[in-house]
Amino acid sequence: MAIRELKVCLLGDTGVGKSSIVCRFVQDHFDHNISPTIGASFLTKTVPCGNELHKFLIWDTAGQERFHSLAPMYYRGSAAAVIVYDITKLDSFQTLKKWVKELKEHGPEDIVVAIAGNKNDLGDIREVPMKEAKEFAESIAAIFIETSARNAVNVEELFQKISKQIPPLQNAEVESNDSFKLTRPPNPTTRRCC
């Protein structure tokens, strides 16, 4: 099966649980006292989808969102974006629109957008009605799901939904994409001159 790398970028206010969602998805692990990300450029997880394997490269904001200083390069080449809000904090839902706008401005045009209402285990202190969030997501043709990174609810499902929305690879795309990452160069295939 062909492995396809898909960059996914996470957006949303500080403290809504972006990292917890990824941590649950990638490591199936939840930590109440989550520490700042140090040293993780992105985390990866591979899931099957149809005849392909989707290798998600999940980028976190590395805190650059904290003072509104996310760099445009963060969005480059993303196949999908997950915008996370906290269902117990109305503020974090209200800023969704800002993130959507930011994404429209800097993100790739054909990006798949998913909106995740996190902390749905804390339903009794909910501030954001599910209906309202769902309607907003529909209005921008985004995937919508409520998650709980803590209880491992709907995290897998979130990424499955994203996987399904990724358009199948066009052959033409493969051919035209001749850009590459820099690595130690391939061993020179030196051939003796005739």
């Binding site: 809504v16 930590d31 520490s35 904290r66």
Partner: peptide, 13 residues
Amino acid sequence: NSSTGEDRGDMGQ
């Protein structure tokens, strides 16, 4: 892990 950087909102590890 027992650090306190929750406000960073990043992937903890």
